[in-house]
Nucleic acid binder design. Structure first.
Length: 487
RNA sequence: GCUCCGAUGGUGUAGUCCGGCCAAGCAUAUCGGCCUUUCGAGCCGACGACCCGGGUCCGAAUCCCGGUCGGAGCACCA
């Protein structure tokens, strides 16, 4: 090693450089790939979805090919009409460039045709058992009476049902698998059921809708998917879907199931979000308390942050906790250099500086980069200033502290006296402050609470991501309001 | 309960397929130092992990067996 270091110092140095993390290669890639994003339009995309968006997008970018955005809207009772557009916008914002858009509700005839193919080959049957009976039979590995219906009769029943014929019982179409499969979840599963309800796209044209396992299997084949990567929650679904591929002689895509990510401190369940929005608890889908893409974007998270985070997390089957620390740290890298610095005094208390001369405070907009400019404040003698209540509490009686960019002050009980302007010398506590011309300001935090205080006057017109020194990065959205981003 | 999957520091990961270069790398967090009129950035340092028990082997984070723990799914959501 020592010898190597002497002979090839430049090579070893190269190794020390931090290397970009790279996702593992996919298996069985032959030329280009076809992959997909398959959200349901029950709401906009949220933090949890960004992983599948980024991973699929990354692989298509690596290998070339198609990235299909397939909106899975075969359950009219679970659709938010606005979501179709929201999802597209979320993808666009994330920098995920899909090459095809597929809406499943427009493909009903394809599903019907494939269903007929399966029925006529004896792989599926129409069933009118009561739900409890059907479940009981499966648990006991016994066939229900309808399992032996002839294909001809099944086709007749299917066409009647799909043709919106009025009927007393609500039949379902069942895919035959293996009644003795060790995993009861894999045994004969339901492919179509009747849903009475108006679909935002197709109205009342259809009522016999395919379930996810059916439409997904058909589309994954029809659209020529080569690789399907999704969460481990779909492992059993994959097993179910494989039966369709087998029965119809289709080639299986390469499947990969990544581990579940537990995300704390946030509401991710779309049903909960929806409830909160209708009840007025949340202001909308972009409420700062929600982790939808639109909310995170509004607070100031960058698209690159999502990408880097999920690439760093890699593709593995282990479950993991989402780390806001790491996520925020990545985001900081992207926003820091363009964020100007300003003073915001949260929970301000007034102090009068006795014996202070006229002075001008000159503060960098960005540390050590004079070229970016300054904020300047001319102060009268004996000025009234505001500092944070929390800082005041920490300052001991008799202590000399420094107002950043201004001068030193000594505390004597509840009064404050000028203590020179010398920067150097003994280390002093440095705190921020604002003058009398500051204005009222509110920061809205992701836990739903607000911080109120005073913002220095030069920041008032500024909009966008800034750093409020010693407080946090925020996205300033108006003269008097900002959204908390992260420290 | 049944089926399947997984297990590297506080957290996220690299390495595991094809055992030795791993007395385990990186990031983040925490602590300390430098720098600095920020809590940020940068630089330096500290801290801290191969779930347990057997087996195979000259040699195991890596292979085999058993256990423990954790997770996912369990049917008319996606």
């Amino acid at each position: 090693m020592e010898i190597a270091r002497e002979l090839y110092p430049e090579i070893l140095q190269e190794e020390h450089r931090e290397k970009e993390k790279r996702l593992a290669d996919l298996k069985n890639v032959h030329g280009k790939v076809v992959m997909r994003l398959a959200p349901s339009p029950s709401g906009p995309l949220h933090l949890g979805h960004t992983r599948m968006c980024i991973l699929n997008d990354e692989y298509v970018k690596r290998y070339g090919g198609e990235l299909i955005l397939r909106i899975e809207d075969t359950n009219p009772n679970n659709i938010l009409p606005e979501a179709y557009e929201m999802i597209k916008e979320d993808c666009r914002w994330l920098g995920v460039n899909y090459t095809q858009l597929i809406i499943q509700s427009e493909r009903m005839e394809i599903y019907y045709q494939r269903a007929r193919d399966l029925i006529s080959q004896g792989y599926a049957y129409m069933c009118t058992c009561r739900v409890e009976d059907f479940k009981r039979d499966l648990m006991n590995s016994t066939a229900c009476p309808h399992r032996n219906t002839t294909p001809e009769e099944n086709i007749r029943l299917f066409d009647l049902t799909a043709g919106n014929e009025p009927m007393e019982q609500h039949p379902v179409l069942v895919i035959k698998t293996d009644l003795h499969h060790p995993n009861p979840a894999i045994r004969d599963w339901i492919a179509f059921r009747i849903i009475e309800g108006t679909h935002p796209h197709t109205g009342n044209k259809y009522r016999f809708y395919p379930l996810m396992n059916f439409s997904v299997a058909v589309d994954d084949h029809e659209l020529g998917l080569t690789h399907v990567i999704r969460g481990t929650d779909h492992i059993n679904n994959t097993e179910r879907q494989k039966y369709i591929f087998k029965y119809l002689g289709w080639t299986l895509p390469e499947y990969f199931h990544y581990g579940m990510i537990r995300i704390e401190d946030t509401v991710l369940k779309k049903t909960l979000m929806k409830k909160g929005i209708t009840s007025g608890e949340f202001t909308g889908w972009d409420d700062v308390r929600l982790s939808t893409i639109m909310s995170l974007a509004k607070r100031g998270y960058q698209p690159e942050t999502f990408r880097k985070y999920w690439i760093d997390s890699g593709l593995n089957e282990t479950n993991a906790d989402f780390s806001w620390d790491i996520f925020n740290s990545i985001n900081r890298q992207f926003i820091d250099k363009s964020a100007d610095r300003y003073f915001f005094v949260s929970s301000p208390v007034e102090i009068k500086i006795n014996g202070a001369p006229n002075a001008t405070a000159k503060l960098n907009l960005y540390p050590n980069e004079d070229s970016r400019g300054f904020r300047k404040y001319d102060l009268e003698n004996d000025p009234v200033l505001y500092i944070q209540e929390s800082d005041l509490k920490d300052i001991a009686d008799g202590e000399v502290f420094r107002l950043k960019g201004l001068y030193n002050v000594q505390r004597n009980g509840d009064s404050f006296t000028y203590a020179g302007s010398e920067v150097h010398g003994e280390k002093k506590r440095i705190i921020h402050w604002v003058g009398e011309h500051s204005s009222k300001f509110t920061v809205l935090k992701p836990d739903g609470t607000e911080d109120h205080g005073l913002l220095e006057s030069e920041a008032v017109d500024k909009i966008g991501i800034i750093q409020l020194e010693r407080y946090s990065f925020v996205n300033k959205v108006s003269e008097s309001r900002a959204l908390f981003l992260h420290r």
